[in-house]
Amino acid sequence: MKKLLLILSFTLGIFINAQVLLDTASIKVDTIKHWSVLGKQSLIINQAAFSNWVGGGGNNVGWLVGADYNITYEKDKDLWENIILLNYGQNDTKGLGVRKTQDVINFSTNYGRKVSKSWYLSVGAGVLSQFTAGYEDGNNPAAKKISNFMAPGYLNVGMGITYRPNDNVNVTLRPSNARWVFVLDKDLQTAGTYGLKADGDDSLLQYGFLGTAYYKVKLMENVNVTNTASIFSNYLDHPERLVLAYGLILNLKVNKFISSNITVDLMYDHNQIKKTQLKQTLGVGFAYTLDNGVKRSDRKDSQWWIKK
Rank of each mutant, 00 (worst) to 15 (best):
G89C: 10
I7M: 15
T276C: 04
Q280M: 11
A287C: 03
Y154I: 07
I262M: 07
K216N: 12
R179Q: 06
M150K: 07
G134M: 13
K77S: 10
D291W: 04
L96N: 11
G211D: 01
T101F: 14
T263W: 03
F149R: 08
I231D: 10
D185N: 15
R299Y: 04
A67N: 13
P141W: 03
Q41C: 07
M220C: 06
V181S: 12
V20C: 01
N227I: 05
E136F: 05
L121S: 09
W180K: 14
V157S: 11
G56L: 09
K2W: 07
V254S: 12
G57W: 00
G283I: 03
W119E: 04
R99D: 12
W35G: 00
Q19I: 00
S42G: 06
S302G: 09
K33R: 15
S122D: 11
W304I: 15
L205M: 08
N224C: 07
I161A: 07
D237K: 13
K307N: 14
G285I: 01
V171E: 07
G66I: 09
H238V: 12
I32A: 02
W53V: 03
V29R: 14
D103N: 13
T162H: 06
N148Q: 13
N234A: 10
M150H: 05
S42M: 06
N222F: 05
G56Q: 10
F209M: 07
K100G: 00
F209T: 04
V264M: 13
I27S: 07
E240I: 12
W80T: 07
A125L: 12
G97S: 11
T11K: 06
K274Y: 02
G39Q: 14
D202T: 08
S36T: 05
M267Y: 03
T72K: 14
L204A: 01
L6A: 15
K197P: 00
G247C: 00
N222P: 10
S42H: 10
A49M: 14
L266V: 06
G247F: 04
H270C: 03
N110W: 02
I231M: 15
G89K: 09
I83L: 12
R99V: 06
T11I: 07
I249A: 14
I249G: 04
G195M: 10
D202N: 13
A229Q: 03
V223H: 14
N166Q: 05
S118P: 00
D78F: 11
K94C: 00
Q41P: 03
Y194P: 11
S176R: 11
L96H: 06
L248F: 05
D30G: 11
S259I: 03
T101Y: 11
E74A: 04
G195N: 08
I249K: 09
L155Y: 10
H238L: 14
N46F: 13
A18R: 08
Q102F: 09
S297N: 12
S118G: 05
G55I: 12
N224L: 13
